[in-house]
Design a protein around this nucleic acid. Structure first.
Lengths: 142, 142
DNA sequence: GTACATTTGCGAATCATTCGCATTATTGTC
DNA sequence: GACAATAATGCGAATGATTCGCAAATGTAC
């Protein structure tokens, strides 16, 4: 594995939540080019070392987020107030997915699922700004 | 409701599957500006008349797809061969979502779920091009 | 260590989506 | 039905994530 790819993979593994390409790039000290980050992320996903999904959030717009692949497929919750992710743990959709697969005669190769709303921390602060609201790049948080 | 918004809404209602902004625009005879289509789609979604999700497909790239809101929340399957959507019917995630909400102390306001793979028709054609593969705009179907 | 195959950097290009602003359509009110 | 106030539309340009082309640099097999 090349240096750039290894660096991108460790960034994903070190993170406690999915990272966008920009998020990965900002964590790479020996900065490598953004095109390389994108290519590395593609490569890691194809190699089964990372999983990704596309999510829209008011603060960051539409971006693809990557997480290092764990032993089991996982899903995430995204807080629309603090813009952090909460790990929802192992996927529980197996039953529903195979049910739908059977009922509709499909061959499902992949599924995407994520929840959005307000996390416990932010809910506790009664709709105000959470304790860590300092992560955005692009404004627009109404 | 203005003419443009009404036109966009009927396009969504007439379609048997979710449409991207480009898809809506291409079905509007008395063509209105693309910016207007985007604004109308936003408006309809805010008004609860449409639902949307962002999906990536090899042929069309990342796009947001809109469907006229029916009485119940629905989910879709996207075929990676013919690039059509299959309606999976009423959402069955209620149980799982509230379970996760409780377990993680979240307030879930929205969830996104979709399946991708090969639909029955395409599977029957053994990996070949399906009967209707003539819908793409941007190349890249490897 | 050499030669060949890959990957990286850099800069420019794409593509969906959004913005600014002047013009036009809607809508409630007389 | 005409009028004023408000919101929506068209047009053109801008934005932001992502991708491409190509030359230089790195990784890998022998």
């Amino acid at each position: 594995m090349t240096r750039a790819r290894a660096a991108v993979l460790s960034a994903l593994e070190a993170a406690s939540e999915p990272l966008s390409a920009a998020g990965v790039a900002s964590r790479l000290t020996g900065a490598c080019d953004q095109a390389t980050v994108y290519r590395a992320l593609h490569h890691l996903e194809e190699a089964g070392l990372a999983e990704s999904f596309v999510l829209h959030c008011a603060m960051h717009g539409v971006e693809r987020y990557y997480a290092a692949a764990s032993s089991t497929h996982r899903h995430w919750f995204h807080c629309e107030s603090c813009h952090r992710f909460v790990d929802l743990g192992e996927c529980r959709l197996g039953g529903i997915v195979s049910e739908l697969e059977r009922e509709h005669g499909l061959r499902v190769t992949r599924h995407t699922m994520y929840l959005t709303g307000v996390c416990g921390d932010c809910a506790a602060i009664e709709g105000g700004r959470p304790r860590d609201g300092s992560r955005g790049r692009r404004g627009a948080a109404t």
